[in-house]
Design a protein around this nucleic acid. Sequence first.
DNA 1: CGCCTGGCACATATGTGCCAGGCGGTGCTATATT
Length: 482
Amino acid sequence: MVEQKLEERLKEWFGFDSFRSGQKEPIQSILDKKDTIAILPTGSGKSLIYQYAGYSIPGTILIISPLLSLMDNQVMQLKKTGEKRTAALNSMLSLEERRLIENNIEKYKFLFVSPEMLQSNHFLNLLRTIKIGLFVIDEAHCISQWGQDFRPDYLFLGEVRRRFNNPLTLALTATAPEKVVNDIIAVLHLSKEQTEIHRNNPNRSNIFYKIVDTTARDKDEILLELLTEYPMPGIIYFTSKLQAEKINQFIRLHTSLRVATYHADRTNEDRMTIQKQFLENKLDVICATAAFGMGINKKNIRSVIHYHLPGSLEEYLQETGRAGRDGKQSIATLLYSYSDFSFKNRKNHETALDEQMMKNIYENKNSSLDDLSDSDRAMLQIVQYKKMNKQEAVLFVNNRIEEKTRQLFAMNDFAKTQECKRKIISNYFEHESQEKPFWCCSICNPNQAELLKEMPVTEPMIEKKDASLKNWKEIIKVLFLL
DNA sequence: CGCCTGGCACATATGTGCCAGGCGGTGCTATATT
């Protein structure tokens, strides 16, 4: 009876006849007033969960989002469906726009913010004047993945929750092994017993996992071979911007593929142009760093190649998971070289507070934050925020290095193992062994000549000119407000 | 836990051999300057 009601409202509010897999359970859990962690694949309609909740419960839905572009996307989508009570409060706003929103704060139903914004007292006080019906953390794996050594404000969200009197909370993510779920629970100060966790099967049976054992010397030539064989479009992931640029040139020189780079040094405008071209099948290959990912929803990516070893299986699964969203056969290829592992391992061990820094922190000297690397600065902020003493700080840093090392070794073991790759993934993400597809991995199917014949060739997408152009203009407008 | 690059010496006028040094990546926000 309740189920029928849920679906009636779905029809009424969103015009859909039925929920997609994995949407209904977390919605029910929220309606039952239980803190909820929902793990479901990208593209499965995560935002519908908090939108639905928004129409069912009183108060403002506050959504913490990691990227300005994601916030803009969500606001645009909501407005397109007629929901005007929506805003993103961030540094892109002009002073006037900001005032307008702040003066009418209680009128907004959906508010998007960055975790950094929630550290400003001005903003916290403003939000305490309204009732927060649901506290949503979108892309919640960022808590574990970015909070620890890159964006420390993610780690302070539990304190923010407490200041709002612990509102009903929903964490949404696509990839979360138990360690990440535990981090989310701990950081947000949720109760391990009372939080409902909804896990959906991440099995991507249409992705073939291939590992090529190689060396840095032979890599480029192997890559070239792969690119001539593989159907496109594809992404090549690098862990260095310089290398992405170099290989971009190399591919241009040796093939007729349409290729571009995407990383943090590209301007926002370039990034959007490239993303748009890729979406419209005007580019065959993107040479990218980890910057290319979240919020990119292209269905027909046939191939994801890792030029370098990712730092963790979480990262690897997120990136390979961008292939084959259309359900058709796709291929994930890792170009493994031992030197990449060894280099990364050394780098991980370098992220430590050195003697001078420790002195600066604990003798209250004003150490210049500008001289520090991002990860050192983040570490410093965490140490100061949590008021750790010297001993605790050393322990914290060592634990962090240990954790990173553990993740890297898990990734390395995955690459080197002679067992089924899919089985390792299932184990790591704590899922019961999944049914083995016919095309599984380079261990189960060492002879892959037939695989490529079965892969679909790129079909040109029918452009929805109206919609995409309109959005595009909106994005440009927002950009020029800078 | 490796591998590439650049500089230099060396034997010859361009190539070779050696050795030291270098070597990630994710983005908020605030503020000063055009």
